[in-house]
């Protein structure tokens, strides 16, 4: 992940640093290279455009161009903007590395609802979180699948529940998502469950019926966390997806899956900017312990090869 982007940025930066004096045109040329590198890495076009505009504005100022090490200054500006783009800026909400943890200290049962496109990794991520909540937070978790569309979706979560040693709500054939959500909450209260994870069916953001169903579930379950699960291989469509989902439900964060791939990681860079919500976790494999807390500052360092 990020290697290709990192290499390309590195080359541009080396050239910038290698020159003594910098003219405005040199900065603009370098920014054109950065733009292409970002787009090849699948950073969303509006995000890339915005990024380049901000960096350019700061970098062509007198104080930078006339400084002793102008190249170094420009690189620093790019660096800071990148960190901000990932949600690790000085004013961002996270802790030391910018990581924003799950909110679990609400009145139990705390509800976590997973939403996203088909195949993005919701069910797997639900089980990973269930396991994490049991093991790391020492809380009692329960999972329920509200996916009545995909063949064997509920069975999939049940199997994963066994592997994660997290209870799953018994399957009642034919029950609809909103009713399953209600039953999950009742069962959780009866059994003193701390955290209920609701896995939902994959849906396209343009599918009105399914988007309405998701809203209905959210209004019944009043989730503390609504996590958008996004494939890190996602291309330019990331913007449409993120905007549509956040218009419909109160997103609280993002999980980026398949960060174990060799994607250029653009979705990671765009998601925060587009949703305004922190990326909380990264999925780094198919196994249930392959989930990492997302640290914006560390990721930025990796991209910039520091």
């Amino acid at each position: 992940m990020f290697d290709a982007l990192s290499d390309r940025l590195g080359n541009t930066f080396d050239r910038l640093r290698g020159r003594g004096a910098l003219r405005e045109q040199d900065v603009r040329d370098a920014m054109r290279e950065v733009r292409i590198a970002l787009l090849e890495a699948d950073v969303a076009l509006p995000v890339a455009r915005d990024f380049i505009a901000k960096v350019t504005e700061k970098a062509v100022g007198e104080s930078v161009l006339k400084s002793v090490t102008p190249g170094q200054q420009v690189v620093k500006i790019v660096n800071d903007e990148l960190v901000a783009m990932l949600g690790g800026g000085a004013n961002a909400e996270g802790g030391e590395d910018g990581h924003v943890p799950l909110t679990l200290d609400a009145k139990p049962p705390v509800v976590i609802m997973m939403v996203g496109l088909q195949g993005s990794g919701k069910t797997t991520s639900t089980a990973k979180l269930g396991k994490l909540i049991r093991e790391k937070h020492g809380k009692k978790a329960m999972m329920a699948s509200l996916d009545v569309n995909r063949p064997a979706a509920q069975e999939q979560l049940a199997v994963l529940g066994e592997q994660a040693q997290v209870d799953t709500l018994p399957i009642i054939e034919g029950q609809q998502p909103v009713d399953i959500a209600r039953r999950a909450l009742e069962s959780a209260k009866l059994r003193n469950v701390d955290v209920v994870l609701l896995d939902t069916a994959g849906r396209l953001h343009v599918d009105e019926a399914l988007m309405a169903e998701m809203k209905a579930v959210a209004s019944v379950a009043t989730p503390t966390e609504v996590l958008l699960v996004v494939d890190s291989l996602t291309g330019q469509d990331a913007v449409n997806v993120a905007q549509s989902f956040s218009d419909e439900v109160p997103l609280t964060g993002v999980i980026l899956t398949r960060m174990d791939g060799d994607a250029r990681g653009g979705a990671a860079l765009s998601m925060r900017a587009v949703t305004g919500k922190p990326i909380k976790f990264a999925g780094v494999g198919e196994k249930l312990d392959a989930l990492e807390a997302f640290h914006p500052r560390r990721v930025a360092e990796r991209i910039l090869g520091m």
Binding site: D42, D231, L233, G235, Q236, D237, D262, A263, A267
Partner: peptide
């Protein structure tokens, strides 16, 4: 190939 995937599809 998933249409929602970006340039990674080439790889």
């Amino acid at each position: 190939l998933d249409a929602t995937n970006g340039q990674n599809a080439l790889s």
